[in-house]
Design a protein around this nucleic acid. Sequence first.
DNA 1: CTTGATTTGAGGCACGTTCCTCATATACCA
DNA 2: TGGTATATGAGGAACGTGCCTCAAATCAAG
Lengths: 341, 341
Amino acid sequence: MNRPTVHDIAKEAGVSLATVDRVLNARPGVRAKTIAKVQDAVSRLGYVRDTYAANLARKRLFRFVFILPEGPNQFAETLKAAIDEAYSAQIADRTVLEILRVPFLDPHAIVRRLQQLDVTTLDGVALMVPETPQVRDAVARLKAAGVAVVALVSDLPNSRRDHFIGTNSVAAGRTAGLLMGRFAGRSGEVLVVSNSMRARDSLERRLGFDAVIAGEFSGLKVLPSVESFDDPARMRAVVGEVLARRRDVVGVYSMGSGNTALLDALRESGRIGDLVSIAHELTPTTEAALREGALAAVIAQNVGHLARSALRVLRALCDGLSIYEAQERVRIEIILRENIG
Amino acid sequence: MNRPTVHDIAKEAGVSLATVDRVLNARPGVRAKTIAKVQDAVSRLGYVRDTYAANLARKRLFRFVFILPEGPNQFAETLKAAIDEAYSAQIADRTVLEILRVPFLDPHAIVRRLQQLDVTTLDGVALMVPETPQVRDAVARLKAAGVAVVALVSDLPNSRRDHFIGTNSVAAGRTAGLLMGRFAGRSGEVLVVSNSMRARDSLERRLGFDAVIAGEFSGLKVLPSVESFDDPARMRAVVGEVLARRRDVVGVYSMGSGNTALLDALRESGRIGDLVSIAHELTPTTEAALREGALAAVIAQNVGHLARSALRVLRALCDGLSIYEAQERVRIEIILRENIG
DNA sequence: CTTGATTTGAGGCACGTTCCTCATATACCA
DNA sequence: TGGTATATGAGGAACGTGCCTCAAATCAAG
């Protein structure tokens, strides 16, 4: 009736508890034939290890480190808050968590920080950093030391990370493109702004955005990306200039952060009512802009979900459990004024 | 360093383990002064009970029952599948789960089914049923017997349910209205179809939809709701007739289930390309329609999330834990062709 | 058959909690 | 002051698992 326990397995297999334990935990000193007997009993009874009891017995403590970009990045702040909240809500118990901030655009600083980690006491790392060869090496080193590694928000597809937690940027860009096309509803130009097209995410979003606009909204012409290089003043100046000069612009697509400066420029242009503006990530700035009508839509990933997923996936990796994909899939959310929160 | 245990509390408070236990579990036989001493130690050390160890010691088993509508309801099927999946993924361990189906529109049958439940062994119930006085009474009876009750998908606001797991229907309707207005982009009529306007959800969605259209899209005129009363043939016939007769219709809003028949009617009308069609809930039918372009958007609640939330909330209620609101809030999702899944 | 190595069993303690029992201490009341 | 009710302590068993030791059984090879 109830869940079978190791005792039931021992009885069913006709061996002792100690032997069952040796088999379940892959400890040496068991004949192949005996291993088979035990595994047989396990599958016959449908035994599943009680992970909580196991961790209790082992009085295991997990040490996780999250690496997030530092600097004036509202999304990172929002994500950090979500991680803190998920942590204190005991999404993963028996866990100590540390959040480190690194300069996003300095691969060497990132790697230096990763090397300072004490891998002997470390169980898992979640990384939100751009993929560079240095980072790939650092991930390989962590993996070699037996540390679980997940990429957060921005994937590290060519590294040895165990898992990626985030959305497909191409699909997110396509979604933005579809919304832009349908919301604009007329011909004209679309201004695309980003911090830096060097980031993989921006590239992929642009790819998806362009594909949909080109394929389905031939009346729209997407202008070359305007880059701000994380400089608010520059963002404001360049966008203001373009909007003043080009009267055919009907939409603005912001692929990265720096939305505060962008929105300032939009307001100054006096064309908010005419323009369809779409940005990524829900932050205090973008949320206020949605309510005010300055942004028509925000394409977002739920930061709370990202945080909880990262914690759960790291735990599952450490516990050797399988990952519940359906729960961990991060969806591309479309936020309009009416469905905030 | 590590989490404090009951032993630490006992030491800190200068009392015995037994007394700490009595205080923590609100058992009688402790002087007020001693209770205060213990609670003081608890807050000083920041003790939090290890729920798993507690349930382990208590060898507790939870019995939950889910009540879902029976009959040809694709959303209910999808939800049931999600519940089965969440259950087998051990979202809530030490739990036995039963899913019962009841005729959605027969309050007496629903109540009869609820009364058959053995409340002595039952720990929690999740209900997806329309609110009627009979249901309210049945909920009160369950609560009186100490059973945790959550309303699922459709709220029972005037009952004594502990929690509601689902979305705000008015906000969902407003979201649909905003999308309809922006996607249509021109003047005309909007056809609204539903199974039955008697259901609270349909009423509320309509309320939100109308408010947004009236307030912001004055070029659109919303027609009176067409009701199908769960009869696919009727749905197909009525919609077909309206679309043939009224050439000004630019959008169709489907508030409830029965989308298969609706989509058939749309296809037959030959006006799919012209019309902006919006429906609720992601099912095999609506998903296929999105891909095909027959539906412009689907307003959905994630069934996997609903299922997991219901299980987690019921467990939290039984364990006497606080509910992690941020995780349990069900979002109004907007699904377009590009962000399915 | 002996020797030595390998495999297995039996048992115990630990983890953090619950929930007993039994004995003792303290407070209250007459 | 004694008697009684109430409060508290000490300790133990249990939950499912991990991990250890020690001894016994089994096996392979000479």
